[in-house]
Amino acid sequence: MVQSETKLRKSKGPHVGLFVTCLVDLFRPNIGFAAVKLLQDAGCRVSVPAQQVCCGQPAYNNGDDAAARRIAKQVIETFADFDYVVGPSGSCMATLRKDYPEMFEDDAKWRERAADLSARSFELMSFLTDILGARPMPASYPGRVTYHDSCSGLRKLGIKDQPRQLLSQVEGLTLAELQDSETCCGFGGTFCVKYPEISTHMVSDKVANVESAEADTVLGGDLGCLLNIAGRLKRLGKPARVFHAAEVLAGMTDLAAIGEPDRKPEKK
């Protein structure tokens, strides 16, 4: 792996397998394309293995370890041959990085393979800054944005400054820090539907902080949290728009924001 990495860096840059994550795949492909663009701009060769589905976190966090291991093995096999595995989510990538090795504590062969994948797996924005030291191509987003630090990325992967560092280079963008930006938005995977009332209480706090930040846009690095925040904002009729930070960084915000109607009216 080390050898091929050096070789590639000399020729075409590292070969990155995009772990698109199931939510982005299903709900917001734009984030996936934004990730591809950011990686390619930074000099990576990007492939998207068609065998990928999900990281298995829903099973693992619900206690179904056997199912989680089956899914993890599939991910480990699918992404065996890349220099790096990168995904636009702190939560999913923390599963690859932190949970996989733990899942195979009692299985020497798979533990080793999981550790190998873990060492090559990164969340998109931390990969761009910490590993590649990349400066994204100039993008512009005129607006006052605020940033929600999603919990897994923040606490399991130490993602805090990286997105801010990247966003500071976006033209026209002002970052207004969110009060309690490190407090959970109430998504929590299946938590939000298991305990909808508590989850609503938490996301309402988040929305109140968005309002007091007087931001017109909320950004974050995890689509789960963003769907939750956008869903609550829209239900309350609040105007703030919600994007994944990668969309802004890649200059791909022409698409309607999360939970907003299509910009172009549909053909009648």
């Binding site: 492909p29 539907v193 909808p196 609503t200 956008a230 869903g231 239900r235």
Partner: peptide, 22 residues
């Protein structure tokens, strides 16, 4: 999806999946 839509709108998907588009 009542657990979600009781208090939140549910953002509609973009249409095509990423893997399909890719």
């Amino acid at each position: 999806a009542g657990g979600w839509t009781g208090s939140r709108d549910f953002p509609a998907p973009q249409g095509q999946t990423f893997l399909d588009a890719w």
